[in-house]
Design a protein around this nucleic acid. Structure first.
Length: 529
RNA sequence: GGUGCUAUCGUCUAGCGGCCUAGGACAACGGCCUCUCACGCCGUAAACCCCGGUUCGAUUCCGGGUAGCACUACCA
């Protein structure tokens, strides 16, 4: 490759960053890193009517959380947006002067013209003529500088008349776009319309013009974007030619779309609401309509799980590897292994990835993440509780239970009984495990446990739960009385946990300690008879 | 309607003419483990869209059909 690899992610600040956009950003990032190139971030805010305050910050913070680094343009640093690089400014709304110059160039060279048709007139035309298109066949019947003359057009503009600038597409020309994922895509220019390049109403170009000018000026080498852009890629090629930039035109790669999990069509925010999963990386509070959308971060996802999951939605290496770190992705990613067809969004697999990454974390690290959640939960149940939790104890109970959860917040359901005594007993568990003889068994067990000295209660370090001293004692007791192991143990478990679930029983008694264990058995006896 | 893109288990995908009795993962189902719930392990079920052509031989190449998707704005 002759020139340095420079790719860009260019979102519009019209709301939260969609998960499909995240994947586009990720693929750009992986490609840049792999080739030792630059990853740029540019804000495409040329539609002033759709601008949403805070969206830019949201997008940048999301990428930062996910570990998608930005080398140039706008990025998130220490909780705020900073701009770096010498190809700026990197917000299109701040590049008006630049676009003026290039719009003029196109007018001068005859590749574009002024048009005065109002939106209402165009709408009327569309009503009147089925499949109306502003192009070589119709432009001479419209109100533009081609029909009224350039001098007259300039006079009208000087008079303050609103106008747009349209690209003059030459008819009947086959235009070929080379796509790195799909190969050559050819269309005939007859199906292209004279696209609006600039609108005087807000003194801003449209996407098409701004995109080409900026990619050229910012020396972008590869345009990696969603498949929805494929139909307009030939127009972009024509634009590069019109500017005389054909020889430095970037390479194109159009990514397959992320589809709804059920049915057909593009994945949308609505699907997430409907099916109950986030479509945004971070929770988003919409400043205009006030809605709150859930985010992957707040749902308990690890960024590396989201990255791994997304990377595999549309890309796969040969072989059976499923778990990829960012570094491995950078090393192995390649555009020609990106699939051509859209990928249905499989949320269940996302959960599985998070489960895998959660198992990889140390108990101590998980304890740090879980501690605030745990404290809140305890306060909800016991508002006056101000007891300080021991992080190493929390880590210990996490070690006992983490293999059964996908997310950190789910830990609460697994460990709650370690911190708060059961207030009620699960009915299903009672029906199945609390037998007629259980009160009698529990009374006898209580006597037995009471006789055990405090010093012999806890399992010595290095021994498994099966080797716990309590285990031997209780098993002897069960055998001597010819009780069923399951009958006694399950009833005991219900006393301590409140349900027939949880880790090994002796791991529980170890942590609860003698006094609390006995207390819970007495309370259960009291409540359940 | 027009144009383009796409097409392997329910889902993500491996496969780039014979290694295919089509492989892996998620989900589903069954079993094992077990004081419980999980995890884990083992196993079962599950796919080459259709029709032609090329070839000794097509999941793989070509053509057509069908279906899905995208685009078709003074939105990106």
């Amino acid at each position: 490759m002759a020139h340095k690899v420079r790719v860009r992610f260019a979102p519009s600040p019209t709301g939260a960053l969609h998960i499909g956009g995240v994947r586009t950003a990720l693929y750009n990032y992986l490609f840049a890193r792999q080739h030792g190139g630059d990853m740029l971030l540019r804000i495409e805010d040329t539609d002033s009517t759709r601008f949403v305050p805070g969206a830019e910050q949201y997008i940048l913070e999301s990428l930062h959380w996910l570990g998608i680094g930005i080398d140039e343009g706008l990025r998130w640093e220490n909780g705020q947006v900073v701009e770096i690089g010498n190809h700026g400014p990197y917000r299109q709304s701040e590049r008006r002067e630049i676009y003026h110059q290039y719009v003029d160039q196109l007018i001068q060279s005859g590749h574009a013209y002024y048009a005065f048709d109002t939106p209402a007139q165009l709408e009327a035309k569309r009503q009147e003529i089925p499949n109306f298109q502003y192009d070589a066949r119709t432009r001479m019947q419209m109100d533009n500088s081609l029909t009224c003359g350039l001098d007259e057009a300039q006079r009208r503009i000087a008079n303050g008349e609103k106008y747009v600038v349209r690209f003059l597409v030459e008819p009947n020309e086959d235009v070929t776009v080379h796509d790195l994922i799909r190969g050559d895509v050819t269309i005939n220019s007859n199906i292209l319309d004279d696209k609006v390049l600039y609108k005087s109403a807000d003194d801003l170009p449209t996407y098409h013009l701004a995109n080409i000018v900026d990619d050229h000026l910012m020396e972008v080498s590869h345009v990696i974007r969603g498949e929805e852009w494929l139909p307009s890629a030939p127009l972009h090629v024509l634009l590069y030619r019109a500017f005389g930039w054909a020889d430095t035109m970037p390479e194109f790669a159009h990514l397959p779309l992320l589809l709804k999990p059920d049915g057909n069509g593009k994945l949308s925010k609505r699907d997430g609401d409907r099916l109950g999963f986030p479509v945004f990386p971070l929770e988003f509070h919409h400043p205009i309509d006030g809605t709150v959308s859930s985010g992957y971060r707040e749902s308990g996802y690890f960024p590396e799980a989201v990255i791994n999951f997304l990377a595999l939605l549309g890309w796969h290496n040969t072989g059976d590897q499923e778990m990829f770190s960012m570094d491995e992705l950078i090393q192995q990613f390649s555009l020609d292994r990106v699939s051509k067809s859209g990928a249905k969004f499989d949320y269940e697999k996302g959960k599985w990835f998070n489960h895998q990454y959660l198992q990889l974390k140390s108990n101590e690290e998980l304890a740090q993440l879980f501690l605030p959640i745990l404290e809140n939960k305890i306060r909800e149940i016991e508002p006056s509780n101000s007891r300080v939790l021991d992080p190493s104890l929390v880590a210990q109970v996490i070690g006992l239970t983490k293999d059964r959860v996908n997310f950190v917040p789910e830990l609460w359901e697994q460990v709650n009984f370690f911190f708060v005594a059961p207030a009620e007993y699960d009915e299903k568990s009672l029906a199945k495990r609390w037998k007629e003889d259980s009160p009698k068994h529990m009374r006898e067990l209580l006597d037995l446990l009471e006789s055990i000295p405090e010093s012999d209660w806890t399992t010595p370090a290095g021994l498994s739960a099966d080797e716990a001293p309590l285990n031997q004692t209780v098993m002897d007791f069960i055998a001597k009385n010819e009780y069923g192991v399951g009958v006694v143990m399950n009833a005991f478990r219900i006393c301590l946990v409140g349900a027939a679930r949880g880790p090994h029983i002796w791991a529980i008694t170890d942590i609860l300690g003698k006094a609390e264990t006995l207390r819970r058995v007495r309370v259960a006896l009291d409540k359940l008879g």
